[in-house]
Design a protein around this nucleic acid. Structure first.
Lengths: 173, 173
DNA sequence: CAGTTATTGTTACCGTACCCGACAATATAG
DNA sequence: CTATATTGTCGGGTACGGTAACAATAACTG
């Protein structure tokens, strides 16, 4: 089975790490977005809020630079979060043209819940693996990600907004 | 750095398997599409051609069903491949309403090159890993993918067409 | 055999998301 | 004071995904 040039077909595509990674990555992003939807945020919002926890008061440009996205996208993300009452655009003390982004109390209350959702999602995703295998997988994935040369922060290209959600999701419960 | 509940920030997002998988999956799909672009096809085209190698002559509905996508998407994919002279829509011997999809000689010549590109891409992606680690990673990923319940075939949601490529790419170099 | 239903492939439409450049407001340099 | 750069924002053009509808043909029913 090492050589199948006669059949012409190579590996069945489920034995390729690149295919598996792409497929799993898509699935993971989709399911995580679905799980995060009841909280009213998308994965990229979660990443932004998580980063803001340690960089409160910085400007939008700094945020966009840190997360590796364009400032234009940051405008849209902050618009969403501001509309949901999770961040505030205050006046920057040093630069009157820049905004100082701050988390609201609602964000501080929401973030632990979002982290719980992420933990549950990860736990469900890796249900077939033992604790040692999970740690090894994370280590290997991090090595691969580190080898790509990309910054370790939030990755670009995460629209992944759940559709069919016209109104405000019922967070009244 | 194991516990920082005082700061409120959980794991730095690069220690979560779900985040790493999503980030890596996106990166892998992007780089693979970029590598495949000089051949004039996208990753989903490659998957379709690969499946067609073993299912030549079947209908579009069977293809769409096997790859887990809608028939409409299959129309567009086959349009692309037919325009590039890689597949042919012949008359189905049994059903006059269905088409029998066949690979052309150009496709048979292109597929080994595409497989080489995939091999090189995978090899470059896993450059930081040894042979044993690669096999373990593939096995673990396959277990996770198998646990999701999705069909093992081609995964949905792969637009990933390289932009800015209006004309035929110059592979003369 | 006539009629009805289901299936195949295709087209058109619409809403959405992304990418591009351009613009007002402000800070900094000369 | 003037000129240039930076920050944040806005609009247009383009491509993609998904839904509904349609002609052509097969399968089923009486």
């Amino acid at each position: 089975m090492s050589d199948d040039s006669t059949t012409g077909a190579g590996r069945p595509l489920t034995a390729r790490a690149n295919f598996l990674l792409s497929q799993l990555g898509f699935h993971v992003a989709q399911t995580f977005a679905a799980r995060l939807a009841p909280l009213g945020i998308a994965p990229n919002h979660f990443g932004l809020l998580t980063y803001l926890e340690r960089a409160e008061g910085c400007t939008q440009q700094q945020l966009a630079d840190a997360l590796g996205i364009h400032r234009k996208v940051m405008v849209g993300l902050l618009d969403d979060l501001e509309q949901r009452g999770l961040v505030e655009r205050r006046r920057h003390p040093g630069d009157r043209r820049a905004h100082a982004i701050h988390l609201t109390d609602a964000a501080h209350h929401l973030l632990p819940r979002a982290r719980t959702v992420a933990d549950e999602h990860e736990d469900d995703l890796l249900a077939a693996l033992g604790a040692d295998e999970r740690a090894d997988l994370v280590a290997v994935l991090r090595r691969i990600a580190d080898h790509t040369g990309n910054p370790p922060g939030v990755h670009p290209g995460l629209p992944l907004a759940v559709k069919g959600n016209s109104g405000a999701p019922g967070d009244a419960s």
